[in-house]
Structures are given as structure tokens and as C-alpha cells.
Simulated assay, not measured.
Amino acid sequence: MALGDTKLPLEGVEGQAPDVGEQDYTQRAQWLRAAVLGANDGLVSTASLMMGVGAVKDEPKAMIISGFAGLVAGACSMAIGEFVSVYAQLDIEVAQMRRELQTKGDGASTDRLPSPVQAAAASALAFSLGAVVPLLAAGFISNYKVRLGVVAAAATVALVVFGSVGAVLGRAPMGRSCLRVVVGGWAAMAMTFGLMRLFSVSAL
């Protein structure tokens, strides 16, 4: 038998090849989960801020302005934080690629390098989408008590949606995931409302 015809046993080697489809799904799921978390953050922080202002002032304008200010400030903060974080990750991966190029003569592909600008824009957009929910809920209601109730109800519905999406992406029990998200959102809104109400009473 010629040397070129020799076949080495490859049993078990083929199964070790990386599943490209699974890797792509994992990366997409990570991006979507980050977007859901950003939207949830925007929803809870803005709704809590509006509830806190509503505990002190019953004017709809005050709640809406505070909510819009929270949207802008939160989106900018999320974008800057994500940009700095992803840029640090990019520097680490580029340095690793350079080391591999020097030692092995072959570096990894640059197609999968993270984009700080894209990450910052996605984070700001996700936060803004979540923050818009309580703003739209309170924007057309003049009655004070009804407005507070509608903001809390709209935030609850959105929290259930975000919790469900997060459970699907994370392959976790949906009921438990939704319960955690809703209870956390309620706690944030209740604590902000209660502390601001206490502060307004004690200040007077």
C-alpha cells in the first residue's frame, strides 16, 4: 500500500468541529438579551422616576418632563458606558490577535470584532424604547390618581413582555422569569414613590 493511500482514523474528530450555527445563535441571543436588559432598565428607571416625582407633585407636566429627562440622561449614560466597555474589550481582542500573529503567523478574523459605536447605539436605543412606555402612558391623562395607576399598569405589562422575551432567549422557566422582573420593577417604583412621599411630608 502506498504511503499516500494511508488513511488515519478520524473517529471522534469530526464531532469536535465547532457548530457554526450554534455559535451564531448564541451571539444573536446575547445581543438580544442585552437589548432586553437595556429596555427593562429604561422602563424601570423612568417609571420609578416619574412615580417619585408624582409622589411630590400632581401636575402631569412635572411627571412628563422628569420622565423625558430620565430618558435622555439614561440613554446617554448607557451609550457612554457601553462604548467604553466594548472599546476596552476591542483593545484586548486586538492585542490578542497581534500576539497570535507574531507567534503563529496567523491571526483570527477581524469580522467578529466588537463595534463600540454599534454597541453604544444599540444600548441607547434599547434604553429609550423601554423609557418611552411610561411616558406614553402618562402623556394623555390629566387625572393624578389615574395617571399613576396607568403608569404602573403599563410598566407591569411591559415588564411581563420583557421577562417573557428574556426567558425565551435564556431558555429559562417563563413564569419564574416574569415574576422576578415584575416584582423587581414594582419594588423599584414603590420604594421611589414611598421615599419621595416621605421626603415631601417631612420637608413640609
Score class of each variant (00 low, 15 high):
Ala88Lys: 14
Ala88Met: 12
Gln89Arg: 12
Gln89Ser: 12
Ile92Ala: 13
Ile92His: 07
Glu93Arg: 15
Glu93His: 14
Val94Lys: 08
Val94Asn: 03
Val94Gln: 05
Ala95Asn: 15
Gln96Phe: 01
Arg98His: 10
Glu100Val: 06
Leu101Phe: 05
Leu101Asn: 04
Gln102Thr: 02
Gln102Trp: 02
Gln102Cys: 01
Lys104Gly: 01
Asp106His: 08
Asp106Leu: 08
Gly107Pro: 00
Gly107Trp: 03
Ala108Trp: 03
Ser109Met: 13
Thr110Pro: 07
Arg112Tyr: 11
Arg112Thr: 14
Pro114Tyr: 11
Pro114Asn: 14
Ser115Thr: 03
Val117Ile: 15
Val117Lys: 04
Ala119Asp: 06
Ala119Trp: 06
Ala119Ile: 01
Ala124Gly: 06
Ala124Pro: 00
Gly130Leu: 09
Gly130Gln: 10
Ala131Glu: 03
Val132Cys: 11
Val133Cys: 06
Leu135Glu: 09
Leu135Ser: 03
Ala137His: 06
Gly139Lys: 05
Phe140Pro: 00
Ser142Gln: 05
Ser142Val: 10
Ser142Arg: 06
Asn143Lys: 06
Tyr144Ala: 08
Arg147His: 02
Arg147Glu: 08
Leu148Trp: 01
Leu148Phe: 02
Gly149Leu: 07
Gly149His: 05
Ala152Met: 11
Ala153Gln: 09
Gly163Cys: 10
Ser164His: 03
Val165Asp: 01
Ala167Met: 11
Ala167Asp: 09
Val168Met: 13
Leu169Cys: 13
Leu169Ile: 15
Gly170Pro: 03
Arg171Ser: 10
Ala172His: 01
Pro173Trp: 00
Pro173Tyr: 00
Met174Leu: 15
Met174Asp: 04
Gly175Arg: 06
Gly175Ser: 10
Arg176Trp: 15
Cys178Lys: 03
Leu179Val: 09
Leu179Trp: 08
Val181Ser: 11
Val181Trp: 01
Gly184Leu: 13
Ala187Phe: 12
Ala187Asp: 12
Ala188Gly: 10
Met189Gly: 02
Met189Gln: 05
Met189Arg: 02
Met189Leu: 11
